Structures are given as structure tokens and as C-alpha cells.
Amino acid sequence: MTGYYDIVLGAIPLSLLGISGSLTFATDLALSTAVTLGALVAVALIGHAMFVNGPVDAPSLRQDAPATPTDSPTSTPVPDAE
């Protein structure tokens, strides 16, 4: 099963090499400029994967968290035994 982060990891070198190579050969851009532009796309992919769609853990219930008043069995008033 291919997830989002697997695609990002594959797209980083693909964008760096693919964009750099295509800009160098197709547009006669200098190699240093083409590599810089390819690296900017790779950095944008990394930034998106880290900050926009960052990896998060699923929310879980803490065992040491205090119970809320609605969860506690003693939260309802007990009538006096008279």
C-alpha cells in the first residue's frame, strides 16, 4: 500500500533529477540554475510533507488523565438515607 509519504519520498529525487535534466536539455538553461530550480521543488515537497500535511499520531486516551465529571460514577448527587 503506497501512502502519501511514500509518494513524497519518491518524488523528491524524481523532481530534483527530472526537473534539472529537463530544464538543462529542453531550455538550454545553465546546469547550476536548473539544479537550483529542481532543488526548490524538492524543498517545497519536503516542506509540504512536514508542515502542511505533517505526520500525526492518532488521538488516544491517556490512562493517567483525570476523569471528567460526566464519566465519574460519583458525579451525581447521592440522596441522604433518612
Rank of each mutant, 00 (worst) to 15 (best):
G18K: 00
P69D: 02
P66M: 00
V52R: 14
A44E: 04
A39H: 08
T27K: 09
L40Y: 06
A26R: 06
G38N: 03
M50S: 11
S22H: 10
S15K: 01
G21L: 08
G38I: 01
G3H: 13
G47Y: 06
D64Q: 10
A34W: 05
L14V: 09
D64H: 09
P77R: 00
I7Y: 06
L16I: 10
F25Q: 06
T36Q: 05
L14Y: 05
S32Q: 07
M1H: 11
A30E: 13
T76Q: 14
T24D: 12
F25T: 06
G21A: 04
P13M: 01
V43I: 14
G18F: 04
D28F: 12
G18P: 06
A39C: 13
D6R: 02
Y4I: 10
G10S: 04
Y5K: 02
A11P: 15
G47W: 08
A39W: 10
A39F: 15
D80L: 02
R62Y: 09
L9M: 08
L40C: 06
V52T: 15
D28C: 05
A11F: 15
V35T: 14
S72P: 11
T74G: 04
L9D: 13
G10L: 12
P77I: 00
T74Q: 09
D57P: 14
A42M: 03
P55L: 01
A49L: 01
D80G: 07
P69N: 01
Q63W: 07
P66Q: 00
F51A: 01
S32I: 05
A44H: 07
G10A: 06
H48L: 09
A34Y: 09
V41F: 12
V56K: 13
P13V: 01
T76G: 11
A44Q: 05
P73R: 00
L9A: 11
A39M: 11
V35N: 03
S75R: 03
A81L: 12
V78T: 15
P13Q: 01
V52Y: 11
T24S: 07
N53S: 15
D80Y: 09
A49K: 08
L16H: 10
S60I: 10
A65D: 12
P13F: 00
P77A: 00
L9V: 10
I46M: 11
A42V: 06
L40I: 06
L45Y: 14
L23F: 15
G3K: 03
P66L: 00
S20E: 05
I7K: 03
S75T: 14
G3Q: 07
D64P: 15
I19V: 14
V56E: 13
G3A: 01
Y5M: 01
L17W: 12
S15I: 02
G18Q: 04
R62N: 08
I7W: 04
S32V: 12
V52L: 09
T74P: 07
L61C: 04
T24E: 04
L29R: 13
A49H: 11
E82F: 10
V43K: 02
